[in-house]
């Protein structure tokens, strides 16, 4: 749960930096070539990463398999824990208060399901359909998508769920791995988790809003 979660967060950070390249406008360099940083980066990921150690276009599949394996293991662990918790709490209190538990931690499981659904939609929209259609201009694809307020709204909603998931998950992962060494360490971990979640939220929603506002075109 913790290890796969942290790998996925590391992936999100990388994905976020990639998305932020949308802010670099298409320009003509000094030798007269048109430079499209975002498309160049996408092409690099899909074809050139680790080339020539591996043949062109191979590493992306290893990368995708690792991320997919992490997702599957993460979901498997979550389902196992959920089922165990359901068995253990079969008899319910008529009155039950929570004292310490954060709002975000209450959303880990249903939020996770929501994320799985939204992620499927996200992959269909930006990876599966364009790949099948042989689309090689991801920049135009992204701009076309985020010029529609509805897509921006769904995307922002998805990132808010990610924020909630990470605001508990990031700190909790480190606690599970043994980093909670004192009450002070616990406070620090919980604060860092909120900051990491906020960084990812801002880093991801900045671009769609800018497209919608016409700043990126």
């Amino acid at each position: 749960m913790a290890v796969t979660g942290l790998v996925l967060i590391a992936f999100l950070l990388m994905h976020m930096i990639g998305n932020l390249k949308m802010f670099i406008p298409v320009y003509v360099n000094e030798v007269g070539e048109t430079v499209n940083e975002f498309n160049h980066y996408a092409e690099f990921l899909k074809q050139d990463l680790l080339y020539p150690i591996l043949p062109k276009g191979v590493f992306i599949w290893i990368f995708r398999l690792v991320i997919l394996a992490c997702l599957v293991l993460h979901i498997y662990s979550a389902v196992t824990l959920w089922l165990r918790a359901n068995r253990a709490t079969a008899s319910k209190y008529t009155v039950k208060k929570t004292i310490k538990q954060s709002f975000s931690s209450k959303w880990m499981r249903w939020g996770g399901i929501l994320l799985a659904l939204l992620l499927t939609w996200h992959l269909i929209q930006f990876t599966i359909v364009p790949t099948l259609a042989g689309d090689h201009d991801p920049r135009s694809l992204v701009i076309a998508a985020f010029q529609q307020p509805l897509f921006v709204a769904i995307y922002v909603a998805m990132m808010l769920v990610v924020y909630l998931h990470l605001a508990h998950g990031f700190g909790s992962a480190f606690m599970t791995l043994g980093a909670n060494t004192s009450p002070k360490a616990e406070r620090v971990l919980r604060v860092i988790a909120h900051w990491v979640a906020a960084l990812i939220l801002v880093g991801f929603v900045a671009m769609p809003f800018s497209v919608l506002a016409g700043v990126i075109n």
Partner: peptide
């Protein structure tokens, strides 16, 4: 025995009459 798993929520330590801190669970994990 059928106890559930830990989500690091902190509810346990918040009601512990002996104030056993949550960080003992990280000690267990280590």
């Amino acid at each position: 025995l059928g106890f559930g798993g830990c989500q690091n929520l902190g509810e346990c330590a918040a009601v512990c009459p002996k104030s056993i801190p949550l960080d003992t669970i990280s000690q267990l994990n280590r």
